[in-house]
Design a protein around this nucleic acid. Sequence first.
DNA 1: TTTCATGGTCCACTTTGTAGACCATCGAGC
DNA 2: GCTCGATGGTCTACAAAGTGGACCATGAAA
Lengths: 138, 138
Amino acid sequence: MQSETVPQDVLFEGPSHTGVTTPLTGEGGCPIREVLDRIGDQWSLLVLAALEPGTLRFNVLLRRIGDVSKQMLSRTLRRLEEDGFVERTVYPEVPPRVEYSLTDLGRSFLMPMRALIRWADTNQPQVEAARAAYRARA
Amino acid sequence: MQSETVPQDVLFEGPSHTGVTTPLTGEGGCPIREVLDRIGDQWSLLVLAALEPGTLRFNVLLRRIGDVSKQMLSRTLRRLEEDGFVERTVYPEVPPRVEYSLTDLGRSFLMPMRALIRWADTNQPQVEAARAAYRARA
DNA sequence: TTTCATGGTCCACTTTGTAGACCATCGAGC
DNA sequence: GCTCGATGGTCTACAAAGTGGACCATGAAA
């Protein structure tokens, strides 16, 4: 009765061509895990957002985000580079200059990301309300 | 010159009605921070996805996700409940029964979330390619 | 000559997450 | 009546991840 009203378990489907619905247990190409492995951390989304307007250098990025440690920014950038979201360009000057910018893949990711942010923006009042209600109950 | 080619810094805009573009520095209602505060952890998305098909009990959820600890599942659920994504219903039986299900707000969140997952699903090959290229370079 | 800026890395310390024991309660099986 | 199992958690070591700050090599500016 419940599951009839729900179209399909699209959320857990493996690679679309297989048509196999996999559970969320680690292995098996569950697409949610894929997403999380890439952006399910504190900083990746923020870095991608920061790079949206254009190329930035390491320290600018660092200051722009504000509360990220050098180490984490470094790691996050390296992972984003590895996954093809971000391009890293080193200019062999002194002092060294390293620039980070979004690749096409990275930019294409901004689309669904914006949907998420728009959702947060519009539904923030409801979340606040829910929180207030929760506190009131407790 | 750079910032002229970019339409606007939509990603960082504060609450839409203000029209003020805030940086990503913590305070100030940056919507990305809002998103991250809610789902920018290892488990929230997974729990929401798991609840999509319908109501589930705690232990079922635990087994369904597989590699989450009781404590984290507990915390995650409480936070999702606090934020109004999830509803918690206790049946005072013995042994106790507690059921979790998505609220309307929670369900509405699945929409942008699906966009994200669809992106991951379609672009996974490109990510793989990027990784291979990266490894090859190194 | 000292000073500053760069993009990191490294270290000690703190925070976060995990695995597993534990809890109270009742029904079922022996 | 006695043990056993199942429930939804919490508590407590311990392990993993993240932080802040020191540190590095280099050369240009003061």
